[in-house]
Simulated scan of single mutants.
Amino acid sequence: MSTREKILMAARKAFAEKGHDGVSMSEIASNAGVKKALIYYYFPSKEDLYYEVWRYSLDELEEHIFREVENENVYVKKIKRLLKAYVDFVTNKKEIIKIIQREKENLTRKDQEMWKKVHKRYIEFRDKISGLIEMGKSDKKILEVVDSEVAAELILNGLNATVDPDKLNGIREIIWRGLINSDNEKAGD
């Protein structure tokens, strides 16, 4: 693991435990086993480091769930796989999910450039899920009344509500039944 990656992993752990405002660069340096000045070599500020952790975390989540659906041609199975992959990620990557959950209320902050960038990256991710839902609507696999942005927010927020696998699977099933046109449900089994 490179020094940069060690710093990112130590920062991710610290931010997951204490949030952006609860962590000092000294603490991150100590956890990474590096001098604080070395962090500033890679990341000019705490905000830059936080953004990189956020981006890296969302990239990992996005890659995980979309890798599961990229080769699936049956749309209903694609959505079901996306939901299952999200549940899998939430139950196995708790640190990343904690960061996403912890800083959710800060996504609408406009007082710092970093929060604007964090929000923009979140919207890009949400829009990718929303686009998948829109595709299903145009193929008549998703109910026409479903607002794709609201459905994407429900997926992102609902599947982050808990790390209990049974509850997550229950939430996944509710989301699934709310999206899929009942005429297409058999194709997802």
Rank of each mutant, 00 (worst) to 15 (best):
S26P: 07
S26N: 13
S30E: 10
A32L: 07
K36H: 13
A37R: 10
I39S: 00
Y41E: 02
K46N: 04
D48V: 06
D48E: 14
L49A: 02
Y50L: 11
Y51S: 08
Y51R: 08
Y51Q: 08
E52V: 05
E52Q: 11
L58Q: 03
L58Y: 08
L61Q: 04
L61F: 12
E62C: 15
E63R: 11
E63F: 14
I65S: 04
I65N: 03
F66A: 04
R67H: 14
R67Y: 15
E68Q: 14
E68S: 14
E70S: 14
N73T: 13
Y75V: 03
V76Y: 03
V76D: 04
V76P: 02
K78Y: 04
I79T: 02
I79M: 08
K80R: 11
R81I: 05
R81W: 07
L82E: 09
L83C: 03
L83M: 06
K84Q: 11
V90P: 01
T91S: 10
N92M: 00
I96W: 00
I100Y: 03
I100V: 09
I100N: 01
Q101C: 02
Q101G: 01
R102G: 06
R102P: 05
R102N: 10
E103T: 07
E103V: 07
K104Y: 15
L107M: 10
T108W: 07
T108R: 12
K110V: 11
Q112E: 11
Q112G: 09
E113C: 07
E113F: 14
M114K: 07
M114R: 05
K116A: 10
H119R: 07
H119D: 04
K120F: 14
R121S: 05
R121V: 05
R121L: 03
Y122L: 07
I123D: 08
I123A: 09
E124F: 13
E124G: 09
F125V: 09
D127T: 05
I129V: 12
S130G: 06
S130K: 04
G131L: 09
G131P: 03
L132S: 02
M135F: 15
M135V: 14
G136R: 02
K137F: 06
S138M: 11
S138H: 14
S138N: 11
K140E: 10
K140Q: 09
L143I: 12
E144D: 13
V145R: 14
V145P: 10
